[in-house]
């Protein structure tokens, strides 16, 4: 299955791109699995996602926890805690 990934703020800067479509292995079923898969790609991904305590995730534009399922066609956004206002 493939998902649309979006990166924001310093995660976008460190990964070096704002979005990409990615084919996920069948073992990836939830947000935690997706983050592990991205880290396993190494390089910029491993570096940007080294500390997952400062990483937030939204699936289809809603904040979700790590056990939230990830399905084909989902829009998954990965970003640091928000700082607007």
């Amino acid at each position: 299955m493939s998902v649309q990934l979006l990166y924001f703020a310093w995660l976008r800067a460190r990964i070096g791109r704002g979005e990409e479509e990615l084919e996920l292995p069948p073992a990836v079923r939830d947000v935690a699995g997706l983050l592990e898969f991205l880290r396993s790609r190494g390089g910029r991904y491993a570096e940007a996602l080294a500390d997952l305590s400062v990483v937030r995730v939204a699936v289809n534009q809603d904040y979700v926890e790590r056990d939230h399922p990830v399905r084909g066609g989902d829009e998954v956004a990965i970003f640091p805690p928000v700082t607007g206002g």
Binding site: F8, F79, P80, G84, G85
Partner: peptide
């Protein structure tokens, strides 16, 4: 808004 709206400041 400060904790829920997805904005980031640099």
């Amino acid at each position: 808004l400060k904790t829920d709206a997805p904005f980031w400041k640099s």
